[in-house]
Simulated assay, not measured.
Amino acid sequence: MYRNSWLPEVFNDFFYNNNMPKANPTAPAINVLEAEEQYIVELAAPGLRKEDFNMSIDDNGDLHIKMEKKASEQNEKAHYLRREFAYSKYEQTLILPEDVDKEQVSARMEDGVLNIYLPKIKQNIQKVARQIEVG
């Protein structure tokens, strides 16, 4: 399987799927971006609201995304001649990279896209330059 060199291997396993079909063809499309201070997961969710999602991080540090949308109440004065989008459900677990600060994960719904922000752990880079005394 092809691997992007800039994308952590754990993300390749979940997100790089051009060479293989999706297990669930109705699953939302996912983008993963990496910035200097965070990863951003974009999940296509047109027509959904933030109330339709439930996200959690388990004891292993894995991110669980659940979506459930039920059809709106039927109009009392009319009836459907055909109804195909009455219910949808989606669930996925993402194994997060080790450098994600799991206490600071957040999400926001915007313009039909669920954005999940995975901030990286801030690491203090120790400078190695120093003066050495000769004893």
Rank of each mutant, 00 (worst) to 15 (best):
Y87S: 06
A129G: 06
L7F: 08
E9K: 14
F85L: 01
A107M: 08
D52A: 13
V10L: 11
N115Q: 09
S88E: 01
V100F: 15
S5D: 13
Q123A: 12
P25M: 04
G47N: 00
K50A: 14
Q123L: 09
N31P: 01
Q123E: 14
L118M: 09
Q38G: 01
R3A: 13
I125N: 03
N4C: 02
L33E: 01
M55Q: 07
W6P: 03
E91F: 08
Y90C: 09
E34P: 00
G112F: 00
G112Y: 00
T26F: 10
V113F: 01
P28K: 04
F11N: 06
K69S: 02
N31C: 02
N4E: 04
M67R: 10
R82G: 01
P21Y: 07
M1F: 08
Y117Q: 05
Q131L: 13
R83H: 09
Y87F: 09
I40Q: 06
N4Y: 04
N17C: 12
E133V: 09
K69C: 00
N31S: 04
N24K: 10
Q38C: 12
K127M: 06
Y16A: 14
G135Q: 08
Y117A: 05
S56A: 15
R82E: 08
E103M: 14
F53Q: 02
H79G: 12
